[in-house]
Amino acid sequence: MNLAEGVQIVSLGVLAFLMLATSLGVVLLDNIVYSAFLLGGVFISISGLYILLNAGFVAAAQILIYVGAVNVLILFGIMLVNKRQDFTPVRNAWLGKAATAIVCFGLFALLSTMVLATAWPISSGPIAGDAALVEIGKHFFSDYLLPFELASVLLLMALIGAIVLARREFLPEEMVDSTDEVLTLPERRRELTSTPRQ
């Protein structure tokens, strides 16, 4: 990537601002649908940052997987789950939020001190740039072969498991009466005191 230094700085600033603003929106906005869309904004601005970091392939993967799959999945989840309900307010919720915010600021201060105080061993060697894709492919089939193969087992399992959990059980008519208790843990159920089920 051969952009002028100034362009790079400006785009870094814009992307950084976008990323922080959208991610704050994700955690602070009340409406979960807005949050989900802003999450897409976070992913896109991060992928822009990856392009600034000379990693075109990963930037594309970020857009494809995060925006194309994860974010859409989350939106689907919201649509399936979202019934317009206001959570019953908890008293003194702001106190907890303020405390958390202070802790997070402290953590950020600690991490930024660490980032600034450490003399990172910056390499002055050549940059892979567009050859990165070839390099990644080589890694996948040499020193990262084992995690690559294990990831396939993991994905298979996530697929099966997600289907098992999210699938609605369609049971034949004659079985329906008996299913209510059959599909619970053999242990006796505790009283469902907390949520009155309608």
Partner: peptide
């Protein structure tokens, strides 16, 4: 991830 799936395996039980 497999542990999460196993934990929630009895999906009809809250």
């Amino acid at each position: 991830i497999s542990s999460y799936l196993l934990t929630g395996y009895m999906k009809r039980d809250p």
